[in-house]
Simulated assay, not measured.
Amino acid sequence: MQRLSKTRTELPEMLVLDILSKLPVESLIRFKCVCKSWSSSFQTPFFITQHHHSNLRNNNLNLLLQRCNGNTYLDLSYFSRLSTEKGQNFSLKQNIQLPFSEYFSHELTVQGPRNGILCLEFGDNICLWNPSTREYKILPQSPIQRPPSVPPSVSNTSFGCVGFGYDSQTDDYKVLRFVINSFSYYYDGVNIYSHAIQQVDLYSLKGNSWKEISDPGIIAHYATLFDIYVNGFYYWHATEASGDIILSFDMVNERFSTLPLPEFDEGFDISHHLELLNFNGLLGAIVYPREGTLKSFDILVMSGSWTKLFSIESVPGVERPLGFWKNGELFLESSDDELVLFDPSTRGLKNLGFHAYKGTMQIIAYAESLVPLNGRVEHGELVLRRPVGGPSN
C-alpha cells in the first residue's frame, strides 16, 4: 500500500503580514518572539502604516478618560481605559498611573492623538506617549535662550500653548510651544515699565531637537476639550489687536496663518463657549451656553466659509461637551461631575458611572499604532495599570 505523504502549505509572506496587520498591538508584541522576520517586519514603516490604517478603516478605536479625583484640579491626573466592545457599555478596563508622574507639578494637558501618539504637557515638561506599545519619551528641555534684550535679573519665563502635529512629507512628529518672556524695570523699588516678548519653539522627534521659529505676534489660547489638529494644520482660538481670530500652524511648511471665527448675532464670548474641534476631517466649532444645566449645542464646520451643520437642543443636567463617538453620540460632563453619553437619535442620556473633580475630564479616542518613539518602555515598578476588580471608578 502506498503511504500518503503530508504536505504543508505555506502562505505568501505578504498575505501573512496582511493578516497580522489586523491584530491588536498586544498580540503583535507577543508574536515578536515567533521568528526574527516577524519581529523585524513589525518595525518597518510599511507595516506600521498598514496596521494603523487597518484600525482606522475598521473604526477600531480605544478610549481613555483623563481625570482627577482629588479636591482640586492640581491633584494627580490619571487615565482610565474604557471598554469599547459592543455591549460592555464603556466599563472600566484599567486605571493607568503614568510612569513619569514624578515630573508632575501642574495640571496635565493632553494633545492628540497623532497616529496613536499622545502629547502630554505638565509645567515645563512635555512627553510623547504611545499607550498601545507603552513607550514614552520625555522631551529634552529647549536650549533656546531668551532674547538678549530681556534682562535676566528682572524677568520671568512662562510656557504658553502647545500644539502637536505630524509632518507627512518627512514622517516626523512635531511639538510647537509658545514661550513668554516677561520683564519689568524698577526705579527706587517702583515698577516703571513692564513688557513681554513671545518666542515660539518647535521640536522635531526625528531630530530630537528644538529650534526657534518666527513669532506670529498673536496670543493663542489653551484648548482643553477637543483635538484641533486637522489635515496637517494645528488650530488655536487666538487674540490679536483687532479682536479674536483663529491661528493655524502648517506642520509641513512650518508657517502660521489666520482664519476668522464664526460670526454670531450675539457675542458668544460673553454668554457662550466656543470650542474648536476636528469634525470628520474638517475644522469645526461647537458653541454652547456658559450658564445653566439645560444646554443646546450648535456644530459648525469651515469649508471655505463657516456653515452650521446641526444643533442638539435642550440636553438637561449637563455642563460641557467632551467629544463625539462613533455613531454621533456625544460624551458630556454632567452637572454632577459624572461622565454621561447622549444619543441624539433617541435623546437618551446615559450615566457611565465615572466621576472626576469638576472640569478635569477629557475623553481621548485613538486607534492603536506601532509608531516608535525611541524612548523608554513602561516597567511594572514604574506604572500602575489596575484592571477591573480593583478600587471603584
Rank of each mutant, 00 (worst) to 15 (best):
Q66Y: 14
N59M: 09
L225K: 12
S91T: 05
P147Y: 08
S105W: 03
V301R: 02
K308S: 14
R386F: 04
Y203C: 04
E378Y: 06
G267N: 15
I286V: 14
N59F: 05
G328F: 05
E313L: 12
Q145Y: 03
T9R: 03
V200H: 09
Y222N: 11
G207A: 13
L64M: 12
P262C: 04
P262V: 06
D244M: 12
A223N: 08
A285Q: 02
G160S: 10
T44N: 07
G217Y: 08
E368I: 09
V25R: 06
L202T: 01
S41Y: 09
D75F: 00
L341A: 08
L28C: 11
V175W: 05
S37Y: 15
G380T: 04
W129I: 08
R57C: 09
S91L: 07
T72H: 08
T133V: 10
P321V: 13
L341G: 05
K6H: 00
Q50G: 05
P216Y: 02
E121Q: 12
V175F: 06
L120W: 09
L309A: 03
H273K: 13
E254L: 07
S27K: 12
L176Q: 12
I270P: 00
P316C: 05
F178E: 03
I228F: 00
S54G: 14
G267I: 00
V315R: 01
H221V: 01
N58S: 11
G323P: 10
D167A: 11
K22L: 05
R30F: 01
T109Q: 13
C33H: 06
E240L: 02
S271F: 07
V287N: 13
L322S: 07
Y103E: 01
F159Q: 04
S39T: 09
I144P: 00
A223P: 00
E338R: 15
H51S: 13
K86Q: 14
R57K: 12
G217V: 00
L92T: 04
E240W: 10
L330Q: 02
R290H: 13
S184F: 07
L20K: 12
S142N: 01
H106C: 12
V318M: 04
T7H: 01
I48M: 15
N60W: 00
S334N: 02
T293Q: 01
V371W: 03
L61G: 01
M251H: 05
F264I: 03
L276A: 09
P99M: 12
G304A: 05
N125G: 11
P262K: 09
G292E: 07
P391H: 11
E10Y: 00
Y187H: 10
I144S: 00
E266C: 10
Y222G: 04
N55P: 04
S101D: 06
K174I: 10
M361T: 15
W129L: 03
C68I: 08
P260W: 03
Y235G: 15
E240I: 03
M361E: 13
S41P: 13
S54P: 00
L330Y: 03
